[in-house]
């Protein structure tokens, strides 16, 4: 996946926050993977819900959209294959977010 940039990366109020979000994103991706393989679907749904709420605020609308799709699938009790696919999409997106250097 191509690198994803925050729409706020040039906003001086937000640059530091965007960097900390980006730094933390791979850990969240790992956590999503772990929760899925551990079958902890409630926690997975909570985390998807949190990422949905936060992503757009940090200028990563795609995080919000993809996380919302995972949350919906979990809420509706969708098939395992769907949940798996949407979790891995969210993980990919989280691993693709980037921030400008510096700070």
């Amino acid at each position: 996946m191509d690198p994803i940039r925050s729409v706020y990366e040039n906003d001086s109020d937000m640059a530091d926050l965007v960097r900390s979000f980006v730094a933390e994103a791979p850990n969240r991706a790992q956590l999503l993977d772990d929760l899925l393989s551990g079958g902890e679907l409630d926690e997975l749904q909570r985390l998807a819900h949190q990422l949905k709420g936060a992503g757009g605020g940090y200028g990563f609308t795609l995080v919000t959209d993809v996380a919302a799709r995972l949350e919906d699938a979990l809420k509706e009790g969708a098939a395992e294959s769907v949940i798996k696919e949407r979790t891995s999409t969210l993980c990919e997106v989280l691993r693709a977010v980037r921030a400008p250097e510096g700070g």
């Binding site: 109020d13 937000m14 926050l17 979000f21 933390e24 909570r46 949190q50 709420g53 936060a54």
Partner: peptide, 15 residues
């Protein structure tokens, strides 16, 4: 809020 991302975001946005 149970997400620290939101705490930080709100703090920055209300500054």
């Amino acid at each position: 809020d149970d997400s620290e991302f939101i705490h930080e975001l709100v703090r920055a946005r209300l500054r």
